[in-house]
């Protein structure tokens, strides 16, 4: 028999996060919630006398499968928008009705079942191993083939053949010069006595600012300065007096 408090904790730990599958907007949130569900299921397995399966559940699902999901999420971009237009009209309500009907049907059938509970056999690793490697040894070998096939299949599916030969650094540089890029380095940004930073342009020998010397990224973010305020500080008479008086 299972402790009722434990059952309700497990039920809350699995059902509430799994609802994020339906309501959460971001796929990363869903993945983290499903990790919680897997931990709850592991607790359920331990409570049902299957400690080995509980540990395997943690190792395989929270440790490997859900992390693989997270890797793929990062690979395809976390901010993939989900389009909400319905391809089939009323698909949302039909789907909700079908899933809800299935759930209600299953629950109503299972709730009427009363089975006598037999003596507990705890699924310790050695007990599982005896069954696994005596009665089901052929299945284990077939599963080995399946895993190897899956690994090779994943490699083949994600393999991107190289269509063009790889460009060397020398070719990249020659192409740049051919389209008229400046072959030498860009000037460094401004280094002044009062201000030594990347966000102010350097001055050429005639005193004009060189626009190219400031990083393009800073310009796009509007984080550059033209140096006017430093000049104003220098030419401010009040400030000059205080500095001389010091």
């Amino acid at each position: 028999m299972v402790n009722p408090l434990l059952f309700w904790i497990i039920a809350a730990l699995t059902v509430i996060p799994s609802l994020s599958l339906l309501f959460a907007r971001k796929a990363v949130h869903v993945a983290m919630a499903i990790v919680l569900v897997m931990v709850g299921l592991a607790a359920a397995y331990v409570a049902l006398g299957a400690p080995f399966l509980g540990v395997v559940q943690i190792v395989v699902y929270t440790g490997a499968v859900m992390m693989l999901f997270l890797f793929v999420l990062m690979l395809v971009g976390v901010d993939q928008r989900e389009d909400l237009k319905e391809t089939i009209k009323g698909q949302r309500w039909i789907g909700l009705l079908a899933a809800g009907g299935l759930g209600a049907f299953l629950v109503s059938v299972v709730a009427r079942v009363a089975l006598p509970v037999q003596e507990e056999t705890v699924g310790e690793p050695d007990v599982i191993a005896e069954v696994l490697f005596q009665r089901y040894v052929l299945v284990i070998e077939v599963l080995g083939f399946l895993l190897i096939t899956a690994a090779v299949g994943a490699l083949v599916l994600t393999h991107a053949p190289r269509l063009k030969p790889r460009r060397t650094q020398l070719e990249v540089q020659r192409d740049r010069v051919r389209v008229g890029a400046n072959p030498v380095n860009k000037p460094m940004p401004g280094v002044y006595a009062r201000h030594n930073a990347l966000d102010v342009p350097a001055l050429d020998p005639e005193g004009q600012p060189i626009e190219d010397s400031v990083s393009r990224v800073l310009k796009i973010r509007h984080q550059t300065q033209d140096g006017a305020e430093f000049r104003a500080q220098l030419e401010d008479p009040a400030r000059k007096d205080t500095e001389e008086g010091r």
Binding site: S18, V37, G103
Partner: peptide, 9 residues
């Protein structure tokens, strides 16, 4: 059964 229904939804 409840978890299965949520997954199918």
């Amino acid at each position: 059964a409840i978890l299965f229904a949520i997954g199918s939804a």
